Simulated scan of single mutants.
Amino acid sequence: MARYKEVAADLRERIKRGEYEVGGTLPKYEDLTAAYSVGRGVVSSALAVLEREGLIRPIKRRGIVVLNWNVARRRIARGQLVTRNPHTVGYVFPAASRRDEKWTPHGRPHREYAPVPDRVAELMGVEPGIAALRRRRVMSPAGEPPFQLVDTWLSAAAVRDAPRIAEASTGPGGYLDRLEEAGHGPISWTEYIRTRMPSREEAQLLEISQEMPVLETVVLGSSAKTGGVIEVTVRVIPGDRVELVSELRRDESASWPTAPVTPAP
């Protein structure tokens, strides 16, 4: 076994035994090189392995931070049905939550005008970098580390027609109800799902390594009045936290027992 793999294996075992606590830091580079009698390159390669596995994350001025690696992976049954919650009086999309499960914010949800990233600009049909209203929140099930970063981007037309969506409280039903009341309803939605690597900012907010792939779901809301996209919601979830589950159904052509095959004449 290569020496860096041996070092990585030993550090991995120590992390999982709790010798290095979640939220704490590993020894400094010079201490690790001395402890394992190896050069800095070997330590660097070993730490890169652990970072890709989501066990550690180097943070400037803090050191090599041990991440919360023992988080149960959640199975999400993906559907296509949008419902309405009678308690919050708002739309409910296929998501990671379970019925009656309490979710809590990490930090304060906030809103600001920010440059639209390339991906969102492409989907909204606007120039990249143009300022748009972004509503941002980082959420997780109660007691768990950050599970998802949610950014909702709202077009200039949306804010013009429904100015309340730019306020801290958008009222019962949230910003979607305000948009539909302003004449854009019924809104129709399209969802895109892909995996990618996180940006530095996303990794910081989700408390993961930039080496950890993320699952990105993007929901486009289109106006019934104009036909154009008026809102884009981007959810980013660490790749080690979730797996998607879909129930497969038989088409009539795949019914069983199978129909007897008629020989060709």
Score class of each variant (00 low, 15 high):
T25E: 12
L26M: 11
P27R: 04
P27Y: 08
Y29N: 11
E30D: 12
L32H: 08
T33Q: 09
T33E: 12
A35V: 02
Y36M: 10
Y36F: 15
Y36D: 11
Y36E: 12
S37L: 13
V38T: 13
V38G: 06
V38W: 08
R40W: 06
R40C: 00
R40T: 10
G41N: 07
G41E: 10
V42C: 10
V43M: 05
S45M: 09
S45L: 10
S45Y: 03
L47V: 08
L47Q: 07
V49C: 12
V49Q: 13
V49A: 09
E51M: 06
R52Y: 04
E53P: 02
E53M: 13
E53Q: 15
E53G: 02
L55A: 05
L55D: 03
I56G: 08
R57F: 00
P58H: 14
I59S: 03
K60G: 02
K60N: 09
R62G: 01
I64N: 14
V65A: 00
V65I: 04
V66G: 02
V66Q: 01
V66P: 01
L67F: 03
N68R: 13
N70V: 00
A72S: 13
R73S: 11
R73H: 01
R74V: 10
R74I: 08
R74L: 03
R74K: 13
R75G: 06
R75H: 08
